[in-house]
Design a binder for these strands. Structure first.
Lengths: 346, 346
DNA sequence: AAAAATAACGCAATCGATTGTGTAAATGGA
DNA sequence: TCCATTTACACAATCGATTGCGTTATTTTT
């Protein structure tokens, strides 16, 4: 009559007529346990398929060895790559990854914080919901000194640990690239203006124009709500219908950029000759669209790994303390020039 | 001097001069606790930001309320959508989602089973690694009667709970579609032959040919190792160089199909007139390629939800027992006809 | 041979929450 | 007024693993 229960240390102890503490010590070869006992315990453990209950270990040791990941939506190319990176780094360190989605909703993000806290995750890796404008809802973690590492969509003002890309520089470089290709009137697709990443890309865009002595035309700066393909069609239509339409577009994501290409092509606009376009993220679709989309590439998997490593360093401060010396890590981006913007102006 | 420790039920008890059990009962409004006590406990709990420790609850109740998800790679469109579905359903049910990747490696999948078991997940949702050919490594779960639900890449022979699509039918329909468009020599890109999904799609393909009295040409059935874009270039090159090249391709994934379109176009082959192509998965890239790729659409998010619901029903058998009545759930697919295969043969 | 040292292990507390059982005080009825 | 309920709570065990401390034997030392 096997009970339908997993084997515990007590089961082994009973079977060997020793105490549970002896079994526990034997399994980790504690010096005060006799060799034959160790041998016997290990053999039986193997035989019975004993595996330590992580819940019990966590409770006792006060360490859950679990990292929480909160993202807007899992199934976006950039996000899933990020998680991929987190998971790899976490596995190497023996940590479990728990995931929740905010669906870009502030309320849901708030709920998720509770859920994560309830699970006593050792740390939290967060990419903010689009709606989120402050970080008070993270207080359970902040008050209890549980490390939070923000990634990509990071809080603007708050003093905290961040891993992101240099959005300003990326925006500058992308815009400058279009200028170098001969663009004179460059439009910009931006996102929610309270989100740092869009603000910074916009700032880079503006500075690039200024640096190259091009005038800023406010009517060319368009803010999408979520920068979807549908929105991009409308925005592009608006632009092309302007008395003097732009000759370049810098879009804050690839989805919108690709959509813009498709719509512009349908209107017979030649790309990149009449309209040069560059996107952001280096999504798979950027290589499929015709002409292929120039874009800014994220080191997304690496960002995930770095975020975890940073969190780990905060959880278990060790020799690699230099990693966290700077609160913020800003990674470089690469401009990937493809046909959608390359005019070969030599 | 606040200790850097999270508030427990005992802290509240001490502060209110009651026992921990009273606090525990008060928090859930147990009838044997006085109203003022309940009131006082709740207020203090709120004030101190008390939250039950899920680890302790799980250990005590022997229910982790955690579901494990094991997939080959998170950052693939289909997989991340699947996880998205699991996460949504899990959140509604108050379950946590723990994720691991097998990287399509059998060994890593084996390790992950241990890790998941150690965490005492209430159940497991698995999409098999490409390498995996048997399921003995799931014994920790099977032996302890912890539910496993396989999804998409499911074991072929094993008696187990599965959620998948009707791959045979999908293969049949996709092939038949090409036939209806006038194709006479249809090639097929398949995957690892021990993987059920590819075997079934192939079977559907073969039956469709037979049903329409078309000859089977073994040289047109090509098995990719991972069906990558690179592989597809080679396969397509081979096909186009045949003495009598095919006039249609049914690819078991979109990645290869899109790559085939790109290569064929580069060779000046007209699509769909000279070569009609249909893919599988309805990845985002399928809508971006030109001509747009016909494909077979998965209800991927829904598959994730169903997989979780099935797991939940196995974990907590309830009124919805009909869901698990059948070991296997096979979902229907839709043929999405786009320009890459539409010849309008009327 | 007696005392000291060592080896090998058991006991019990702990982590945080839950729950069956016990018990004191308060209330009720006769 | 005395017994019987009811109310409102405390005690202690439990979940599984860990660990400081104590306790036997056995061996070594003097």
């Amino acid at each position: 009559m096997k009970k339908n229960k997993t084997v515990t240390i007590h089961d082994l102890a009973r079977e060997l007529n020793v105490s549970a503490s002896t079994v526990s010590r034997a399994l980790k070869e504690h010096p005060s346990i006799g060799k034959k006992t160790i041998q016997a315990v290990k053999e039986l453990a193997q035989k019975r398929g004993y595996r330590p209950n992580r819940l019990a270990v966590s409770l006792r040791s006060q360490k859950s060895h679990t990292i929480g990941v909160m993202v807007p939506l899992i199934n976006r190319p950039f996000i899933s790559s990020l998680i991929h990176g987190v998971e790899e780094a976490a596995r190497e360190a023996g940590y479990q990854v728990i995931i929740t989605q905010s669906h870009d909703s502030y309320e849901m993000e708030k709920d998720n914080v509770q859920v994560m806290f309830d699970s006593r995750t050792s740390g939290l890796i967060v990419s903010l919901a689009m709606e989120t404008e402050n970080c008070e809802h993270f207080s359970p973690f902040l008050d209890n000194n549980i490390p939070i590492v923000f990634v990509d969509r990071v809080p603007e003002k708050m003093k905290c640990h961040k891993v992101s890309i240099d959005n300003y520089n990326a925006g500058f470089k992308a815009t400058e690239h279009l200028i170098e290709q001969g663009c004179q009137r460059i439009a910009h697709f931006s996102g929610a203006s309270h989100q740092n990443i869009y603000k910074e890309r916009l700032r880079g865009y503006l500075d690039a124009l200024e640096h190259h002595k091009l005038p800023v035309d406010e009517s060319l700066i368009l803010k999408g709500k979520v920068l979807s393909a549908e929105e991009a069609v409308n925005l592009t239509e608006y632009l092309l219908d302007l008395p003097s339409p732009p000759d370049g577009i810098f879009s804050a994501n690839d989805t919108a950029a690709v959509s813009a290409i498709q719509y512009a092509k349908s209107r017979g606009v030649k790309i990149p000759e009449e309209l040069a376009i560059i996107g952001f993220n280096n999504d798979p679709i950027s290589m499929i669209i015709e002409p292929q989309l120039s874009t800014v590439s994220h080191p997304s998997v690496n960002m995930g790994k770095l975020a975890f490593k940073k969190a780990l360093e905060l959880i278990e401060p060790g020799e690699a303390a230099h990693i966290i010396k700077n609160q913020s890590i800003e990674l470089d981006t690469d401009i990937i020039v493809r046909a959608s913007s390359f005019r070969n102006p030599t």
